[in-house]
Design a binder for these strands. Sequence first.
DNA 1: AGCTTCAGACTGAAA
DNA 2: GTCTGAAGCT
Length: 792
Amino acid sequence: MGCAGILSVRFSAFSGGVFGEMGGDFYNPVMHTSPFDPSAFPTATEGGEHQSNLSDSPLLANLNVEQLAAVTLPAEHALVLAGAGSGKTRVLTTRIAWLLQTGQISSSGVLAVTFTNKAAREMVARLSAMLSLRVQGMWIGTFHGLCNRFLRAHHTLAHLPAGFQVLDVQDQLSAIKRLCKQFGVDTERYAPKVLQGFISANKEDGLRPEAVPAKDLDTRKKLEVYRLYEEQCQREGVVDFGELILRSYELLRDHASVREHYRRRFAHVLIDEFQDTNRLQYEWIKMLVGAPGGESSGGCILAVGDDDQSIYAFRGARVGNMFDFVREFGVQHHIKLEENYRSGSHILDCANALIGHNRERLGKNLRTSQGTGEMVRVFEATPNGQHSGDFIEAAWIVEEIRHLADGGWPLREIAVLYRSNAQSRVIESALVQVGISYRVYGGLRFFDRAEIKNALAYLRLIENPHDDTSFLRVVNFPPRGIGLRTLEQLQDVAQSRGCALSDAASALDGRPGRIVQTFVDSLHEMRSTVQGLRLGQVVERVLDRSGVLEHYRNDREGADRVANLEELVHAAEGFAAAEGLDPIVHTDLSSEEPSVLALFLTQAALEAGDNTAQSAQEGVQLMTVHSSKGLEFDAVFLTGLEEGLFPHDNALSDRAGLEEERRLMYVAITRARSRLVLSHAQTRMLHGQTRYNLRSRFLDELPEHAVRWITARKAASPSAPMASSRQPVAPTAQRPAQDEAGLRVGQKVFHNHFGEGEVLRLDPQAGHAQVSFTRHGVKWLALAIAKLTPVD
DNA sequence: AGCTTCAGACTGAAA
DNA sequence: GTCTGAAGCT
């Protein structure tokens, strides 16, 4: 599967980031030896207004005025508004390097937090390149990675076992399902997914069950599940993602000495992508630093973010944290990074004009000294007799890509972006048609694959026999004839005795009981046979003894899975060295030190791998706009710019939703270096039916001077006949009157192509009508395009 | 007990 | 149109 590269990079590049120097790194405020690299020592900065004064400092060379100001800020709280492509990461890393080199702090006095492992890795890599000191042991990582590290160090105070494990979303859901079954929760009324959302959302708001207002019966029921879930996790020694942060927060809150220690220690706290932080993450930061006026104020915060790129409100991100931060910390230093080093001014003009339609902004305008660059083009795909608009759109884009490729543009520098994953399919098949290779982002990640999760479940059971989630996952995998019946009995016994499933096995009798007992025995056997082996060997042996590997070998479609399992062995083999750990596994269940196996399993949960479906081959990159954030490409094709799709129907109910959609569009536009092509289709196959869509309102918000409206001039592919040569659409073409044609629900209508039908629903805001046609089924139509005649 | 079929969903997604 | 998850069949 070619995951070798991905894995080895992942496990080595972040070495020490999470686990390095565990223990010794904590209650040990003693500084590292001097971090100075004499050759890079800067001269006095004199307030640092002009870079010319600093030409002899390689670190600060080539920074623009704003970047320099941000890097050399005094040790006070500050907010940096960093526009897209403005050198944000460079500022963050140079700031850290500058603080270290000027001797203002030691490397143990810095805490830098990001959202993704990728961002953390990049920061570590850039710092290593700038500094001669060991970046490994520094507190640079994700919110969850750092909190994990923190809880490991203080696991006793946190009431957790040394080798506590981290539940990912899948594990969490199955834990909740199991709990529902056990306590007879009506899962028709309270879907496990909903309960999971409820629990996570509350944790991310920093709320334990007792703190959530039980306003109605429904909420009370959910709270009961929340409580039971917490008990279950505690009993099994596992934590979910939210718990990592919530418990770290509470630990700091409840233990003054620990709090004081870290507040004294971290003189500088740097936060990346601040607009994406949720309430709990912000509270954690505040607890770590101490709000002004509190009993002890700690270090200073440098928050870097861009309110215009806030696109994760749906998962709890609060742009409001930016405003709160300024208010609560009395932030005096506001720096805007507005110079963009990525795109020409036509592209930036589009971005600025578009985002100017948003009301709730801190305010910021991207500029460039690069010149205008290419015009931004807009393509409208018109359906023909054989193909719907999305097909024509895809074919046209692929043709354009082929031209680019012929012209020497590297394929990996070309991206096709879309609003929702469902759109990738048409584009993929168009690419396959002409034989252009591509990569799709958004598939399963390595550690989320079923075979890997099965293998990890065995390893977890070796580490912790009380992990019932893992027990249930593999008690009948590979199949050994244990059915639901048996498991229910087992769970009953475990519940009445208050013990783990694996300890309840002996109470069962009959054939099923013997099978379960054999399974439990084999786990014991594996646990003892594995002692003293290297981690890689441990994984290998468990894959063998558990029968997992054999099971996939016998599966005629299991070749990929076998390869992935081999990859897992390889990853385990390299893990210890990369983390600077002893590779020998000792799973002493009462140990105060987590075993290397426990750390490996945690790593797997906290860093599940790139979510790219294909291997890292050269190819056009396909992804959603969301996952394109932070990336850049020479050429960007942004597809499906249609009302209902982008902005998406589900986001249109309120102003905030629309503004987030617009920010999403802003993110997409600012990905392009030199070429940006926007496209929309008049008709699109969606959910197995044809939809008629108006072009996106966002297209009408772009400035005329920077945009060229085009239509197809030639056949997009041999099989696709001429797209009709319509006149370029005027950018200001009128939107349909809301009540056009006087339609109402239940109205009988006639359509030239589909014949007779009845209006099922109306969406006046979007100008859409859903019509059930007698002969062609249910379709959504855009009233401006479809000609509907009312019939009586 | 395990496989197959059928209904229903379906914006976005890090750790 | 395609994937997931639960009920039905062998």
